[in-house]
């Protein structure tokens, strides 16, 4: 996992260096001597392989240095300070998606082809088609202004999390609902479900003990790529709801050409995504005994 992350960091470093512009340029002209001082301080006039080597030797030790734009703050400090915000929203959003999606999907599967199936599933289709940057203002309009129930933005207490979590999780709830419904229908048709019923087990036990594990397998496979996409989704949600999360900071860092911060976040995110995928693989084996690595 670590070598992969280092590779990603190297590629990112290359891309930042190739992109025109640098972190210290602004609309005002910088006196030549000052520019020289900056370049000397950061070793910007050294040959590229020397700069690369310096960067890598620090990165391997987990030292990303200071942010170039927010002078005096280290990259690690910035990441750990803002990660909890993104993580909270992301995890809550996915939990929301799981609860709503699994629930709605299971229910729709049980009531297949009735109005209670078509209703939620059409809503899901609708939910899939709405991008989160459209959903957000609509939710704000309804809940912050028509109903005066929730704050329109900013981090502060539980009520301020509700709209961002829904905005971020809605599309995944829709996906999961559809996947669950399909998975459940598939499983509920199985012979072993018939056997379970023939043993006198009630619907609830049949559903939860016998059908569930098989039915949610498609959702588990979905979780890997979904969590990666969720990370991207946090950017928009953080921007619109003014939450101090890592996603928004990452975008700003790129636009600011704040190389250490970009590299730090990229390294962190790649390890995170790889860890997610690993967990998903493991849980797959946990759920389906047929594919365990004996």
């Amino acid at each position: 996992m670590i070598p992969m992350a280092l590779l990603v960091v190297s590629l990112t470093w290359g891309l930042i260096r190739i992109a025109p512009g640098n972190f210290y340029s602004t609309e005002r002209k910088l006196p030549a001597a000052v520019e020289a001082t900056i370049r000397a301080k950061y070793g910007l006039d050294d040959p590229w392989y020397k700069q690369y080597a310096t960067m890598m030797s620090n990165v391997v030790r987990g030292d990303f240095g200071d942010s170039l734009k927010y002078q005096g703050q280290t990259v690690n400090e910035i990441i750990w300070r803002h990660l909890p915000y993104s993580a909270t929203i992301g995890i809550l959003a996915y939990l929301f998606a799981l609860i709503v999606g699994l629930g709605a999907g299971t229910y729709a599967a049980l009531k297949q082809n009735s109005i209670l199936d078509f209703g939620p599933m059409s809503l899901a289709m609708f939910g899939l088609s709405i991008p989160n940057f459209v959903l957000a203002p609509v939710l704000v309009m309804i809940f912050a202004f028509w109903l005066y129930a929730l704050p329109p933005a900013r981090w502060g207490g539980f009520s301020s999390l509700i709209l961002p979590v829904i905005t971020l999780g809605a599309i995944y709830a829709a996906y999961i609902a559809r996947l669950t419904r399909a998975g459940m229908l598939e499983v509920l048709r199985s012979d072993f479900i018939r056997t379970a019923r023939a043993k006198g087990l009630n619907d609830r036990t049949v559903l939860l003990r016998h059908a569930f594990r098989g039915g949610i397998l498609p959702v588990i496979s979905f979780t890997g790529p979904a969590l990666a996409a969720l990370l991207a989704g946090t950017v928009v949600v953080e921007k619109v709801y003014a939450l101090p999360g890592l996603g928004d900071i990452f975008i700003k860092a790129v636009l600011n050409r704040d190389e250490p911060l970009v590299l730090g976040i990229v390294a962190f995110l790649s390890i995170l995504i790889m860890a997610f995928n690993l967990i998903v693989d493991i849980s797959y084996g946990f759920l389906d005994p047929r594919i365990r690595y004996e």
Binding site: A144, A153, R154, A242
Partner: peptide
């Protein structure tokens, strides 16, 4: 001082009296 850049978010906060 709240560091927010998204224009519609700022307008919403003002409207909500935040």
């Amino acid at each position: 001082f709240y560091p927010i850049e998204e224009l519609s978010t700022i307008m919403n906060l003002y409207k909500a009296g935040s």
